[in-house]
Simulated assay, not measured.
Amino acid sequence: MTIQFVRRRLLASAAALAAARTMAARPVLAQPATKAVGALDLVVAARAPTTPTGLTLSKDGRMFLFMPRFDETTVFTAGELSPDGRVVPYPSEAANRPDPSRPAETLFHVPNGVFDRNNRLWLLDAGLMASSGEPAPGAAKLVCIDPATNRILRTISLQSVVTKTSSLNDLRVDVRPGREVAYVTDQGQDGEGALIAVDLASGRAVRRLAGHASTRSVPGLLKIVEGRVLLKRAADGTTSPIEGGANGIALSPDGKRLYYTPLMSRRLYAVETAALLDAGQDDAAVAATVTDLGEKGLTGGLIADSRDRLYLSLQEFNGIGRRDPDGRIELLATDPRLIWPDTFWITGDGWLYLSSAQANRRPEHNGGIDRQERPYAIFRTRIDAGPA
């Protein structure tokens, strides 16, 4: 079914934004939407067993969901979604049974996966057995799968670039003539994030910008989702703040800039990918290429289109925003059923897909009570561009 939305000025939410204070190296101008970009469609109600934070589509339209292993209720962490809403383990049920004795061969905690330009599926495995705790030795990795055969083609270990408090979160893969690289965010369980750059040809990975202001959780930041302050809420009534470092990432169309933001931050940053990948550059040299692009609201996932515009999962507004290269931001759509919009994907025929993950309704935010409502909604909207 199709739900029509009347786009409204982002300035209508100025009171909430002002309360969170406007911080910009240059003004970010809130603008009304100036061109119809299509309706927001409910594509499918996914009968996923638990919180689907990640989503991607193959060139022939197969859709895959990724469900991090937050706790023991996670039945499987990577799945394929059928048009009727069924979600089955992918690439197999056996591969989704985490085995610490076979860390390179089994999937532990997959928050996201993406297709490259050659239609190969890359999975990011954080190697966790729960939402916290040290990654299992050897379990943090990238896994490349051929969707035509459902066979695992390659596994690249990330053991050398994770720490005891790592929580790998998002992934972008850039494959073009003369380049095969990947970029990963580590949001850190303590909010101390980092970026990871991987040369896919050699398997060499480097950890970058750990401890830098652009990858760290901002203390004291207030995040309101569905009219409620987001906190960790234990069953005994105690609360603690949310911490989340480098989280969402997006790649510019030319592959020269990586956009990123901490989960608990309103600011958007960019860094030169050449510096991230250059083993001869130290972190100070990499940091010199970081640009603060100003405020963009509180978001989860990011993605760039072929016009270098960034789509923003505006979780406080249950909506989708878009940032133009000149810094202007517009609110494209909002709906109360778009609960914790998370991961985006853009198809070659100009559809923007995103998941409604309901992460704020998980037990850890609600005194041990699971308030998620199954099935999980997957939406899409027409845009006037293709993927970056």
Rank of each mutant, 00 (worst) to 15 (best):
K164Q: 10
K164E: 15
K164C: 06
K164F: 14
K164M: 09
T165E: 13
T165H: 07
T165S: 14
T165L: 08
S166D: 07
S166C: 12
S166G: 09
S166H: 05
S167V: 05
S167F: 12
S167D: 10
N169T: 10
N169D: 12
D170W: 02
D170K: 04
D170V: 03
D170P: 09
D170N: 15
L171Y: 04
R172C: 12
R172L: 03
V173I: 14
V173R: 04
V173C: 14
D174K: 07
D174S: 08
V175R: 12
V175G: 02
V175A: 08
R176N: 04
R176P: 05
R176L: 03
P177Y: 09
P177I: 09
P177D: 12
P177A: 09
G178P: 09
G178Q: 03
R179I: 02
R179D: 01
E180T: 04
V181T: 07
V181F: 00
V181I: 00
V181E: 01
A182T: 12
A182V: 13
Y183K: 09
Y183E: 08
Y183Q: 11
V184C: 02
V184G: 04
V184R: 03
T185A: 13
T185F: 09
T185R: 07
T185C: 04
T185S: 15
T185D: 06
D186W: 02
D186S: 07
Q187S: 15
Q187R: 15
G188S: 13
G188C: 07
G188A: 06
Q189H: 01
Q189V: 01
D190L: 13
D190M: 04
G191T: 07
G191R: 04
E192Y: 03
E192S: 06
G193T: 04
G193Y: 01
A194K: 14
I196F: 13
I196R: 10
A197Q: 00
A197W: 00
A197C: 00
V198P: 13
V198D: 14
L200W: 01
L200R: 07
L200T: 06
S202P: 11
S202H: 10
S202M: 10
G203L: 06
G203A: 11
G203F: 04
R204Q: 15
R204T: 15
R204E: 15
A205N: 04
V206Y: 14
V206F: 13
R207D: 02
R207Y: 10
R208I: 03
L209K: 00
L209A: 05
L209N: 01
A210S: 13
G211W: 02
G211H: 03
G211D: 09
H212E: 09
H212D: 15
S214R: 07
S214E: 05
S214A: 15
S214H: 12
T215F: 05
T215S: 15
T215H: 11
T215W: 00
R216N: 12
R216D: 03
R216P: 01
